[in-house]
Simulated assay, not measured.
Amino acid sequence: MIVVEPAPVPPLAARARSVGGSPVRDILAVTARPEVINFAGGLPAPELFDVDGIAASYRAVLAEVPERALQYSTTEGEPSLRAALADRTSVRGLPTDADDVLVTTGSQQALSLLATALLEPGDVVLVESPCYLAALQAFAFTGARVVAVPGDGDGVDPAALEELVVRERPKLLYTVPTFQNPTGRTMPADRRAAVASVAARHGLWLVEDDPYGELRFEGERVPWIAAHPGAEDRTVLLGSFSKVMAPGLRLGWLRAPAALRRACAVAKQAADLHTPTVNQLAAARYLADRDLDAHVARVARVYGERRDAMLAGLADALPPGSTWNRPEGGMFLWARLPESYDTAALLAQVVRQDVAYVPGAPFYAGDPDRSTLRLCFVTETPERIGEGLRRLGRGLGD
């Protein structure tokens, strides 16, 4: 009998071999033990979910329109939900029709659809420094070249942005201008106007991601970049229910000019046909029957108390010479230790104290600042935040 060795299967696509997984997910897998005080996650606080209201919305649509709730839907999204999202956007200062909106399976899918619709291998994408990690992954997966725009505590520097646009001829700029992930910073209105002006003068798509903007604890709301003159025909606004309702619904949306929105709808047809119908109808019913704004205000008050608890203990927890910001909302705080510290190298000894953070280095498209770290303050009580910071201090001091 002749034994024939089987031939190897063909290799994975180059993009699948070149783009790694999320370091944040890897850290969360290590820190899942209940005794760990976890400042590493990007999860909303589960005890604040409106479980009763969401459950009532599902019961209503399954009792009243089961034949619709359990059926296929249109790729663009359920009309009732698109209309409700358009109304919420219009009330906040950006006139929007239901036809301007495409419902997505979380705003992460919106990023993937935009990357598919806009980017060819070798295209240049400009991002903030540091930048939301999953956006870096989505853009890299297309073979695009991701370039960081220098900035400061207020976000991207418009002058540096213009210089890069002229030199690199990018397709788009991606930004989270309000309570950014990972830094928690917010771009002021005058800088948003300057960014819109650069895009209008030089021909640039703007992707404005806003998953945290409603979670404001203090200060005044800053209008979207999409609402500034010059940005109307080139800005894609992304939104999500993940941080204000529940991430398990997997409901996001994008508002985009017609041609790009249609291209994203075609890409979505190829990806998943449509976002689950029952989830869309339940969300639309929730918006009709409940006061989401009041619920978000309650969540924001709790998050504000937790931010204050973290700010109160940082001076004792971090080494002398450390700096950090004071976010006006959102879920994250950004800290920088003295230059000699490498937060990735220190993480293992910190985790031995049963506390965790996310090192800052993975959030950089260019050269990373290895002394930085992201702290999420929303999923622990003020008491556990205080204890977690004491543990963090011990871990950093070992």
Rank of each mutant, 00 (worst) to 15 (best):
P223Y: 07
A356G: 11
V156A: 14
V3Q: 07
R59Y: 00
D398Q: 12
F179T: 04
A69C: 08
G77S: 12
A315P: 00
D293A: 15
L85N: 02
V358C: 11
A189Q: 07
A40T: 09
R307G: 03
P95S: 10
G42W: 02
L273T: 14
Q109D: 06
L206R: 09
R390K: 15
T104F: 09
A83D: 13
V61M: 11
H295R: 05
R68S: 09
E78Q: 14
G122A: 05
T186E: 15
P362E: 07
F141S: 12
W334K: 05
A45P: 03
D291Y: 08
D369W: 04
R92A: 15
G151H: 01
S112Q: 09
P276V: 07
T74Y: 06
S107A: 05
E339S: 15
S197V: 02
V278D: 13
V30K: 11
R307N: 11
V296D: 03
P158M: 03
F217M: 01
A7N: 05
A40M: 09
W334I: 07
D123C: 05
L173Q: 11
A282L: 02
S129R: 13
R234I: 02
L62H: 08
A312R: 11
P182V: 12
P44S: 08
L119N: 10
I2R: 13
L238V: 02
E5F: 02
R192N: 01
L62M: 14
A117V: 12
L126D: 05
P188G: 10
I27E: 13
A189L: 13
G321A: 07
I54P: 04
T186L: 11
W334E: 05
G122V: 04
V51P: 00
V236Y: 05
L249I: 05
G366K: 09
L346T: 03
N325A: 06
D398Y: 07
D97R: 11
W205T: 15
T74K: 10
Y364K: 05
W324V: 01
P319V: 09
A317F: 09
G53L: 06
T175I: 15
V65W: 02
L311G: 11
F217D: 00
P46C: 04
P170L: 04
P6V: 08
R391K: 12
A55V: 09
L314A: 10
L126S: 05
E232A: 15
D398L: 14
T277S: 12
A138K: 06
L333S: 04
A60V: 00
D369N: 13
V124N: 07
V147Q: 03
A13T: 04
A194T: 03
R145Q: 01
L314P: 11
L249T: 06
A297R: 15
R59W: 01
Q349C: 04
R145S: 01
A256N: 13
R326F: 08
G330D: 08
P23A: 04
V176F: 03
Y58W: 06
P229I: 02
G366R: 08
R68A: 12
N38S: 14
G393Q: 07
P257D: 09
G155L: 09
D398P: 08
A32V: 13
R306D: 02
P121H: 06
G122W: 04
R68Q: 13
M245D: 00
H274E: 10
Y72L: 12
L375T: 03
S18N: 12
L172Y: 05
A282S: 10
R192F: 01
G388V: 03
S197H: 10
D87Q: 14
A317C: 10
D87Y: 08
T323I: 05
P319C: 09
Q71N: 11
